[in-house]
Design a protein around this nucleic acid. Sequence first.
DNA 1: AGATTTATTGACAGCGCTGTCATTTCTATC
DNA 2: GATAGAAATGACAGCGCTGTCAATAAATCT
Lengths: 339, 339
Amino acid sequence: MKTTITDVARLADVSMKTVSRVLNNEPNVAKKTRERVLSAAKELRYSPNLAAKGLASSKSYLIALLYDNPSPNYIANIQKGAIKACRDNNYYLVIEPLSMANANAGNEVEKLLERLPVDGVILTPPLCDDKDVLSILRSLNIPYVPVAPTIEINGVSSVKMDDVQASFEMTEYLIKRGHKKIGFIKGHRGHSATALRYKGYELAMEKFNLKIDKNFIAEGDFSFKSGVEAAENLLGLNEPPTAIFASNDDMAAGVVSVASRLGLEVPTKLSVGGFDDTPLAQILFPQLTTVKQPIYEMGQMAANLLINPPAKEDVLPSYHLDHKLIIRKSTDNQNILDN
Amino acid sequence: MKTTITDVARLADVSMKTVSRVLNNEPNVAKKTRERVLSAAKELRYSPNLAAKGLASSKSYLIALLYDNPSPNYIANIQKGAIKACRDNNYYLVIEPLSMANANAGNEVEKLLERLPVDGVILTPPLCDDKDVLSILRSLNIPYVPVAPTIEINGVSSVKMDDVQASFEMTEYLIKRGHKKIGFIKGHRGHSATALRYKGYELAMEKFNLKIDKNFIAEGDFSFKSGVEAAENLLGLNEPPTAIFASNDDMAAGVVSVASRLGLEVPTKLSVGGFDDTPLAQILFPQLTTVKQPIYEMGQMAANLLINPPAKEDVLPSYHLDHKLIIRKSTDNQNILDN
DNA sequence: AGATTTATTGACAGCGCTGTCATTTCTATC
DNA sequence: GATAGAAATGACAGCGCTGTCAATAAATCT
């Protein structure tokens, strides 16, 4: 038999409402009463019934994570972060993979959310830029937080990292290790990160007065295969680059594999940098220097923003979380080191 | 303003209870009435309030997926499968990563489930073999389905694949491609799959009257690194094997990397087989022949068993789902082919 | 046709909690 | 010590649905 708030009330000799006040940290409860209630609750191992709370307060204590199939690794980390925040606040995370491919993601979302009245929604790319989804959310009046969106929305907080800065740091790091001829492999067109990461590369090159050779810029699409193709072009040049910065790890893995096929030893003959710090980065030989995105932290922050919305006054439109340059063997070229 | 069951009842000119009956597919409603209610519900775009349903019926329409950090890929697929089943039944999936490392997973589970009264729990390895967790679940009287458990529990259905058979098929396939000297890399001790996969290898070797050379059996722990070490041993033998079957993809990747370092071309000089069909298997060059586990299907089945429990009479203790041998380039040795 | 069974429908309480508002108790003030 | 105001507490309705059981309508049987 589950203990209810009534049981606790009886034991603590107060009214149900007072128990409710204590358990929800509402003000205006005498210290002594509070303690009495707390110990009664503890003794009875009371825990509230979510459905009842939800029904009475028209909240659900549920946060939904909507996503459309990016890498399992990305999602897993977002989930972990979001769950951390949920646990800390007695919320729960329900997940809903969506497929934007099949026509109207909007409809799907609508059906889902009409039935399950969650208190907030976390949106990951590319969903966070889908007009339909966004407008449904607005019309249903459900708060949401986009993770790493391309477009900012007025009045909506988002969480993101600074791709430009991260990419700048990687490039700067390569330059400081003595590289002057640095190839860059772009990501998928239309993916927001693609332009930003390239921008960072540009800025770093400019800062150190290095000319960007057009031949050193290759188009990719974030896939391993495109990394292979790009590397074949880059390394087939008369004067090939001494370092290649691929804008994600999968493409970097492609570069490493081409290099090894060509007998170009990494990192001594060619340094390779990636981006994302996927599990692959550590599996590769040599292990990959890369950028660790604050994925976990973004998930956590997103959930937190939904659970404890900041007061309107101090709303920042978006929160930037810190990335980290992870230095491993693939760039260990034993050159000039003035780091 | 959300429409309620009362609105529908009024429009269809019946009682609330009748609407409830129709919407829950209960028997004993006249066909005409049913249609009237259905069209009214449709017109009003009615959708039930989960919290209210839950409170009234003491169900939650929530299934929990408990897991302790296996590969993101594994979890992602289990999730997808489970969600498919949930969607089909108007259920929702909440996920709860756990850490068995920190002392008492049991306690954590207990707290979680006391608060969130889910209708069922899906347990993935290694959680599904944790005595504490299982006993909590039993004492809380929450139905659960273990996925790929080591131990069977009386009266509890589980879902699993046939590791022995799958491993047998891989080995048999290698044999039929002309290999006689086949190395095997074991997985992590204590992981249930380890013994089963080895067993399959043994059975196939026996069936074809091939002697198992002890030197051809290497110990691994499912990590890339252990695959590298095992491969170094195996390929350093005077008479090295012509094929290596690593009992997961990460270790197989290790084998491929060692082979390429030694100038042993895969697949012509060495065939390599893996297990799991992780994304890595397709990224590798050459792409990896491997076994695809029915992970998605297991997740789906598990959720289904929870949502629609089979009648006691026809309870099977466990359900085996089909795996699939995925043949790619890493075993394409152009030999005898009598497949 | 009347009696009996069976199918269909509805009235109503109540699931466990919180919001509202009334009531009581304390504290500060003059 | 009386009074106003603030702080603490409680009574009670009701969130939206379903379970129970009673009432009614239809079907079946003598």
